[in-house]
């Protein structure tokens, strides 16, 4: 990287982000910069404010203070759907598929902003509708095939096993055509075999779609295994940043996870 003089603009720049819920300070003065192509892990004990940050990036929560810039432009004050269309896709901690819709429809909904026809075209079923709808469906099917989901495309999302639901959710987030993917605890509730597959999947999508990924995770195996950089949070503040190796040895991190005194014992 040092040898290439090309100035790369960070994908996401967060400065001084703060969020209060009433009197509770969920996130305080949070800073983060993500370079293109990075796979960055965000870890911390329960209640550290990780998901709150995700919700602020995607516009579901309005920050109490601070600035979020995506590709050099502020996204504060934009609606969640505008932020998604700008290029930030996400998955949820507790899977939020559309349970009574088929896998194909779940993915096709993500294609809606790029459908290319209006509701009036659909009402009159004109040739534009026919062509664009077929194109959209084929794209969605090709997309499902990348994830080996084409055989279950007509299944209702709620009938899928847990691991498959995760795959569909990641596929759906990628169908929004994002440049930045936010994964909120993708390995939650998975067995070791599924976790290995998930890690392969994350590597695969990053290479295939040239993505930048921000990952929240509890499972140390996943974070240490795939993230290049890790940011550790506790009580809404950043307590450490660095490579997995540095983080593993950081006494503050050990203290946050295991309690005071654990660092001396370790």
């Amino acid at each position: 990287m040092e040898t290439t003089p090309i100035q790369t603009e960070p994908v996401l720049t967060i400065t001084g982000l703060t969020k209060f819920f009433g009197g509770l300070r969920a996130v305080h003065n949070f800073d983060l910069t993500i370079q293109p192509g990075q796979l960055l892990g965000l870890i911390g004990p329960n209640g550290a404010g990780k998901t709150t940050i995700f919700n602020m990036i995607t516009g579901l929560y309005v920050p109490s203070g601070g600035e979020i810039c995506f590709l050099g432009e502020t996204i504060l004050g934009q609606e969640p759907f505008e932020i998604t269309r700008a290029g930030i896709g996400r998955t949820f901690q507790n899977i939020r598929l559309f349970p009574n819709l088929s896998v194909l429809d779940n993915v096709r909904i993500a294609y809606h902003p790029r459908a290319g026809y209006s509701m009036f075209d659909a009402i009159f079923r004109n040739s534009k509708y026919e062509a664009k709808e077929r194109e959209l469906t084929e794209q969605a099917q090709d997309f499902l095939a990348i994830f080996n989901l084409e055989n279950i495309q007509n299944e209702l999302a709620k009938n899928l096993p847990y691991g498959e639901q995760r795959r569909v959710e990641i596929a759906r987030a990628l169908a929004c055509n994002p440049q930045l993917l936010l994964l909120d605890e993708p390995a939650a509730g998975m067995n070791p075999r599924e976790i290995v597959q998930l890690m392969e999947l994350i590597h695969f999508v990053r290479d295939r779609f040239k993505l930048t990924i921000l990952l929240i995770e509890h499972q140390m195996r996943v974070v240490m295994g795939i993230c290049e950089h890790i940011t550790v949070m506790d009580f809404g503040e950043v307590i450490a940043r660095g490579t997995p190796k540095e983080i593993q040895d950081n006494p503050k991190v050990i203290e946050a996870y295991l309690g005071k005194g654990a660092a001396h014992a370790a």
Binding site: E79, P80, T84, L97, N100, R108, I109, A122
Partner: peptide
Amino acid sequence: RSSSGRTIMSVREDEVAARAMGVD
């Protein structure tokens, strides 16, 4: 049976997820 119709149903299924999928 159109893209708009699917977004209509997505709002019923999960409003938060629909917003995160770029649905107005």
